[in-house]
């Protein structure tokens, strides 16, 4: 009986998150279109795309390593969905929050990208190979600023609490309540670095060099069609949602219900859930939609430079500000 309840909860979380992430993608496309002075597709467009992709023929090219080519989309989707269990969603504790922390999430974040790289190499198309190499380069580039950001945050929180990498600890003592003015600036800088990392991690313009439709024809995904493409499409959407929730969990882990004084658990849950959606939307608006409209695609060397040099330096600066703040106070 208990097992059934647990499985049902897992399915509920994945289902809800998928629906909301698809909606977010629709809203994102609509917003970008409006920013560019177009009308844009309706918000439900991603649902239509998914439904259509499921109806299409699923081709496995002759030259491809067929088992890997077929397995990669599943690995990508499953690992993206795994993220949803370890990151707090809808204002609630993470489902497996007791078993994994921010470090684990950073590791898990690599897996969907690795699956994409596998897919690229397995499809035996020169475009896909180029795309896979680029994906690897960009993956290695954003790791460093991402790690620095998360570790500095946990280091500061670790001064006042045990287990600083647990999301529950981060939610109990948010960074903003610990630091003075200098530290606030430092945290804002870290937040900025994390937002830029989110863009690259989600593989969106200006860091979508691995897919780059206009130059390498869809890159990694060039040989994929039908159901397999649909799985990648879903995985990408879910991963974007998970990334936004990660930023929310690390930097804005506040809940609305204690503030407005709602005690009833169900009502509080609904209010917190809605508030979470607003927060996640704000993160996506900044790190996906606005950046996507404002800038053009980088070259791979430039993108790598942005992460390895610029973002690393910026996040280190944030860390220095945090430690100076600690010394001053």
């Amino acid at each position: 009986m208990n097992v059934i309840v647990i499985i049902a909860t897992f399915i509920c979380v994945v289902g809800l998150s998928t629906i909301f992430s698809l909606l977010y993608r629709g809203v994102d496309r609509k917003l970008v279109a409006h920013m560019q002075g177009r009308v844009g597709p309706p918000v439900v467009q991603p649902f239509r795309d998914v439904r259509k992709l499921l109806m299409k023929e699923n081709i496995i090219p002759d030259g491809a390593i067929s088992w890997l080519f077929t397995a990669a989309p599943f690995i990508c989707l499953i690992t993206s969905a795994l993220l949803l269990f370890y990151i707090p969603l809808f204002g609630q504790e993470a489902l497996l929050g007791g078993y994994g922390d921010a470090i684990l999430v950073i590791y898990l974040l690599i897996l969907p990208s690795l699956a994409l790289v596998l897919a690229g190499f397995a499809s035996s198309s020169p475009y896909a190979t180029v795309g896979a190499q680029r994906e690897m380069v960009i993956m290695m580039s954003y790791e460093l600023p991402l790690a620095i950001t998360v570790v500095s945050l946990a280091w500061r929180i670790g001064r006042v609490a045990d287990n600083p990498f647990m999301f529950s600890t981060i939610a109990e003592s948010p960074i903003w309540s610990l630091v003075g003015p200098l530290g606030t600036i430092g945290s804002l800088i870290l937040l900025f670095a994390l937002l830029v990392v989110t863009t690259g991690e989600a593989g969106k313009v200006p860091f979508d060099i691995a897919e780059a439709e206009t130059e390498i024809a869809g890159g990694l995904l060039v040989e994929y069609s039908g159901r397999n493409l649909c799985l990648f499409y879903l995985a990408d959407i879910i991963k974007t949602f998970a990334l936004a929730s990660l930023v929310v969990a690390l930097f804005i882990p506040y809940n609305l219900s204690p503030l407005v004084g709602i005690g009833a658990p169900v009502l509080a849950g609904i209010v917190d859930g809605l508030f979470f959606l607003v927060k996640a939307f704000a993160v996506m608006l900044i790190s996906i939609s606005v950046i996507r409209t404002a800038v053009a695609r980088f070259k791979i060397s430039q993108a790598s430079w942005v992460y390895i040099i610029a973002m690393t330096l910026i996040s280190l600066f944030g860390l220095i500000l945090l430690s100076v703040d600690l010394m001053v106070s």
């Binding site: 279109a33 177009r38 844009g40 597709p41 309706p42 439709e213 024809a217 995904l221 069609s225």
Partner: peptide
Amino acid sequence: PRYDVERFGIMLVGSPRH
């Protein structure tokens, strides 16, 4: 922006497989 086919869900893709 003047014609904007994306509002009908029509998208230009980079690969014939898609």
